[in-house]
């Protein structure tokens, strides 16, 4: 009897890229729910426009590159980019900015380099950074979160989100419903010579755990991130290093100067900390390769974010921290090749 042949191994675990990607999307669920509860349904609108744009941009790019679009659209990777961008941008962004950011993320962040697996930069952060430097006003206007004393009703928030999505001028109807993020308010407060305890005592910036609104999203993202670690989609190196790189210096600085430097709890539970540590920095394509390399990579992101938050021109610093460390990956990879069995270190 005759048989076909094929190379070993003959059995594989059956993990797939879509499984990885959809697990990541699934793990964003708690953070998404917290986001919607606290900041209104704007996130859902941003998600919709980002997903549609991402799929269209991916299909167009593959068409231009002469590739088959169907498998790439189904692998879920471009949806992860869309989700991460939608989670990063303010929920009040007009739809065309979300669309622009997503299209740039997919085209300039991913396909100019050769598509899936080839991009040196995190595509979502490329899109985010372009939007942030080009549209600073729109990109820093957030709704006042629901957990701030005296904030408006959720239905009012919803109406505002929809209006804003279509580009309504919020100053006429909804002045006072929007504001800067907690990190932004602290930053400008410190610039105005308020001390940190004074700012935190105001009540509209921070709660017991961290920033108003964002603390809950960070907590939910942490839960989703732990789930990913449990499912072995994400290994511990990058998240732990990112948090270490941010929290260790902030712990020291806060100890030395509690009047101006944010403490570790506030750092951990404000802005995009947990989202970056577990979902953005862990994008394997643009991260360092080896476990040791990933520790350096993650620590660099955390540290740079702390530096930018402390002295930089932006209240949150994670997008630039990630992009800068993406740039350092070839360098890190070069010096963190693991020791091969039987070879001298």
């Amino acid at each position: 009897m005759r048989f076909d042949t094929s190379p070993a191994p003959h059995v594989i675990a059956g993990y797939t890229v879509p499984r990885v990607m959809f697990q990541v999307l699934f793990a964003l669920l708690p953070a998404g729910m917290a986001h919607v509860v606290l900041f209104g349904p704007g996130l859902l609108l941003q998600l919709a426009v980002a997903c549609v744009t991402a799929l269209l941009a991916e299909a167009a790019a593959l068409r231009w590159r002469g590739r088959d679009a169907a498998p790439a659209l189904k692998d879920g990777s471009v949806l992860v980019t869309a989700f991460l961008l939608a989670f990063s941008i303010p929920p009040l962004l007009p739809w065309w900015l979300g669309a622009l950011g997503t299209a740039l993320a997919v085209l300039l962040g991913k396909h100019v380099f050769g598509g899936l697996g080839q991009n040196p930069f995190n595509p979502a952060m490329v899109g985010y950074a372009i939007l942030l430097v080009s549209f600073p006003a729109e990109m820093t206007r957030w709704p006042v979160p629901m957990d701030v004393e005296g904030s408006r009703s959720w239905s009012e928030l919803a109406r505002m989100s929809v209006a804003s999505f279509y580009g309504a001028d919020l100053t006429t109807h909804w002045d006072g419903y929007t504001g800067a993020t907690a990190l932004d308010s602290i930053r400008s407060g410190l610039d105005l010579r308020y001390t940190l305890p004074e700012l935190l005592a105001r009540g509209d910036i921070a709660g017991t755990l961290g920033a108003r609104g964002f603390a809950w999203i960070n907590l939910a993202a942490l839960a989703g991130g732990l789930y990913l670690m449990l499912r072995r989609i994400v290994r511990w190196h990058i998240p732990v290093a990112v948090l270490g790189g941010l929290l260790v210096p902030s712990f020291i600085a806060h100890g030395l100067d509690s009047g101006n430097a944010l403490g570790p709890a506030m750092q951990a539970f404000s802005g995009a900390t947990m989202l970056t540590a577990f979902f953005i920095a862990t994008d394997p394509v643009s991260a360092a390769t080896s476990d040791r390399g990933r520790l350096w990579y993650g620590a660099g992101i955390g540290l740079l974010a702390w530096i930018i938050r402390t002295w930089g021109g932006y209240p949150d610093g994670f997008a630039f921290a990630v992009l800068l460390m993406n740039l350092a990956v070839p360098f890190i990879d070069r010096y963190t090749v693991p020791r091969i069995y039987g070879r001298q270190p």
């Binding site: 003959h10 059995v11 675990a13 993990y15 797939t16 890229v17 899936l116 697996g117 290994r235 390769t289």
Partner: peptide, 17 residues
């Protein structure tokens, strides 16, 4: 699992390492 495998680009996840 192997017969039905569909190869897609490497996403550098590092599971192999």
């Amino acid at each position: 699992s192997r017969l039905e495998a569909v190869e897609v680009p490497c996403i550098r996840c590092g599971d192999c390492a």
